[in-house]
Design a protein around this nucleic acid. Structure first.
Length: 105
DNA sequence: TGATTGGCCAGGG
DNA sequence: GCCCTGGCCAATC
């Protein structure tokens, strides 16, 4: 098919869009669901290209340490933290309860 | 086509 | 708990 030109970005979008409310995923987890467990860095790069206007819950994607990769106080950091808290995800400084909110399939 | 950038993961001090 | 380094992969120019 000529439609097989789907890039990781497209696949990542689908995975991120499948994250339920109140749950979070790590970049690595998204990479695995996208088909490449070793492309966590690619996920971060692709997510960085997603505009804030996107309907994708990109804010539900954090690093494996349960922390937001953005700079503390950054525009994205505040937006992500606020959206997550609005969904019931409590944050402690720069970190959140990964074990409690991690989307475990 | 080739090289660079960007960003997370893992380990060690 | 924090900081630093090396490695890896995909997208981009």
């Amino acid at each position: 098919m000529t439609n097989d030109r789907i890039t990781f970005k497209e696949r990542i979008y689908s995975v991120v869009g499948s994250i339920p409310k109140g749950k979070v995923l790590t970049y690595k987890a998204v990479a695995q669901l996208a088909g490449n467990s070793t492309a966590a860095r690619a996920v971060g790069t692709c997510l960085g290209q997603i505009p804030h206007d996107s309907k994708l819950p990109w804010h539900r994607v954090i690093n494996s340490q349960g922390k937001i990769s953005f700079e503390l106080g950054s525009d994205r950091f505040v937006a992500q933290k606020q959206r997550l808290q609005d969904e019931g995800v409590m944050f402690v400084g720069q970190r959140c309860n990964l074990k409690q909110y991690l989307w475990d399939l």
